[in-house]
Amino acid sequence: MKIATDELKAVTVILRTSQAIQEVIRKDVSNYGLNPTEFSVIELLYHKGDQPTQMIGKKVLLTSGSITYVVDKLVNKNYVIRKACPKDRRVTYAALTDSGMDLMNRIFPEHKLIMEKVFDQLEADEINETIEMLKRIGHRAKSL
């Protein structure tokens, strides 16, 4: 029987941790009739303002086909509108509607508290160290 290396154990821990955090997010945002992908798009627009739809996909890790579908769903829920770029007609922006802004003003403080609970067993320096280590691992993985 072959024993797993520390690196393989680390991969397993990272993936399981990611799944557990994603499940916390899924449960939280489902209370508001959203899935995690919809929430990530609304959250991006809430914090960064209007965004070109093709850039949203890159920022929330979605393909261009998926982002169109998600934005369509958010438009149908009246949380997002599409706006033409005044400088380049080929570019379309997604923007929060007043309803989308009201929703985020109402739910984001609670979501933030839930995310803080995920990390409440760590000190601030441990959180920052974790961020830096995961970034290094991610950059290395991308380079392979």
Rank of each mutant, 00 (worst) to 15 (best):
E126Y: 01
D102L: 04
L96F: 00
A4I: 12
I25C: 02
K48D: 11
G100L: 00
V71K: 03
E116P: 07
Y79V: 01
K83G: 08
K142F: 00
P86Q: 06
V91G: 03
G100E: 08
R136Q: 10
T12A: 15
F119H: 13
D72K: 06
Y93L: 14
V71A: 01
I21W: 05
E116C: 01
V13T: 05
K135C: 12
I3W: 00
P36K: 07
I3M: 13
H111V: 05
L144A: 07
S66V: 13
V13D: 06
V24Y: 00
I3Q: 13
P109I: 00
V29M: 00
F119Q: 12
V60P: 00
P36N: 07
N128K: 10
L122A: 07
A84D: 14
M133T: 12
D50E: 13
D6R: 15
A124Y: 03
K135P: 12
T37E: 05
L103E: 02
A20T: 06
I81F: 01
R26E: 06
K117A: 02
D72P: 03
A10P: 00
R90T: 14
K48F: 12
L144D: 09
R89Q: 15
D50A: 13
V70Q: 06
I107A: 01
E23Y: 01
I81C: 03
S30P: 06
T5Q: 04
D125P: 06
V11Y: 02
N35A: 04
R90L: 01
R136D: 11
R106T: 09
H47V: 04
K59G: 08
T5A: 12
G49D: 03
A20H: 05
S66Y: 11
Q51D: 07
E129N: 14
M1G: 15
K117S: 10
L15H: 08
E23L: 00
A10C: 06
P109V: 00
R90H: 13
I127R: 11
Y79T: 04
I131T: 10
D6C: 10
R26I: 02
T97P: 10
E7F: 10
D102S: 13
L96W: 03
Q19I: 05
A95E: 15
G100C: 02
K135Q: 14
I107N: 01
A124D: 15
I3G: 10
F39T: 05
L34Q: 05
M104K: 12
E123I: 07
L34E: 07
S66D: 08
P109H: 10
K2M: 14
A4Q: 05
Y69L: 13
I3H: 08
Q54F: 08
L103H: 02
K9I: 15
V24Q: 06
G138I: 10
S18I: 08
L45Y: 03
I14F: 03
H47Y: 06
E7W: 04
D28E: 10
D98A: 08
K58P: 01
K117L: 02
D125F: 03
T130G: 11
Q19K: 14
K112E: 14
Y46E: 13
Y46P: 08
L96G: 05
T97Q: 10
A94F: 02
T5N: 01
L61K: 11
G49S: 03
V24G: 01
E126A: 08
I131L: 08
T12E: 09
I14D: 09
P86M: 09
I42Y: 01
E116N: 15
T5R: 11
L61E: 12
T130C: 06
K59C: 02
E116D: 14
